[in-house]
Amino acid sequence: MIIKENSSQDRDGLPPFVNSWKQLYILLIGMLALQIVLFYLFMTRFQ
């Protein structure tokens, strides 16, 4: 059984605080969802 380690080539372009592309996409989708909720609350508060 061969286990592939994360090589530097797999990490090209990733920021230092994530370990994989999947983790980066999950972080970005979570931040987008948070912004949508915050803007909705802001809109309803000052309507």
Rank of each mutant, 00 (worst) to 15 (best):
Q23A: 09
I3W: 15
I36R: 03
R11I: 05
M43G: 03
E5F: 14
F39A: 01
V37H: 03
I29M: 06
M1K: 09
W21K: 15
L41M: 05
S20R: 06
P16N: 03
G13S: 13
I36H: 03
S20Q: 11
E5I: 08
M1D: 09
I3N: 10
I2V: 10
M43Y: 12
F17H: 11
Q47A: 04
K22L: 09
K22I: 08
M1H: 11
E5W: 12
F39K: 00
M1E: 10
F39H: 00
E5N: 07
I29R: 11
T44E: 01
M1A: 12
S8W: 05
S20F: 02
K4C: 02
E5G: 09
G13V: 06
Q23R: 03
Q47V: 03
A33F: 14
Y25F: 14
F42T: 05
F42W: 08
F17I: 00
A33N: 09
N6Y: 11
D10T: 06
E5K: 15
L32S: 13
N19I: 14
N19F: 13
S20H: 09
G30L: 06
P16I: 05
S7P: 00
N6T: 04
Q23Y: 01
G13L: 09
I26A: 07
G13P: 06
P16K: 02
T44L: 01
L34T: 12
I36M: 10
T44P: 00
L27M: 10
L28Y: 10
L14I: 14
I2K: 15
Q35N: 13
Q47Y: 05
N19P: 07
K22M: 09
W21T: 13
L32P: 03
F42V: 13
W21G: 08
L27R: 13
S7E: 05
L28C: 07
F39W: 02
N6Q: 03
L38N: 02
I29S: 08
N19Q: 15
I26Y: 07
I2G: 12
V18A: 02
